[in-house]
Amino acid sequence: MAHVHEHDVDENAGAEQRKAIWRTFWILLILTAVEFLIAFTLEAGPLKTAIFVGMTIVKAFYIVGEFMHLKHEVKSLIWAILIPCIFVVWLLIALMREGGSIFDLR
């Protein structure tokens, strides 16, 4: 055949990566299952919200870091993606305060 690749067609190539992918999958699945449990066992309140937000950030870390491979990119790329997200945190804090204020005035 004309298609002769210089890459090795070794069956074991990428086995490490595939293991990491499935490991990430199980972490995401278990975290989602635990979230599901907490939704029905814990009383609504600041603690429950904090747990959900924390678990969501952990899930986001695994999706962005492993699936999107950002963890293995160069530092400047990682920061170029992460630093702009500070604006989202600012918007969140500002608008949540605003929402509370509208509630008080209504």
């Binding site: 989202v88 918007l91 969140l92 608008l95 949540m96 605003e98 929402g99 509370g100 509208i102 509630f103």
Partner: peptide, 15 residues
Amino acid sequence: SALLVSYGLVRYSYP
């Protein structure tokens, strides 16, 4: 983020 944060704003403006 803008969509989800606005959801938070309106949610907290309601009892």
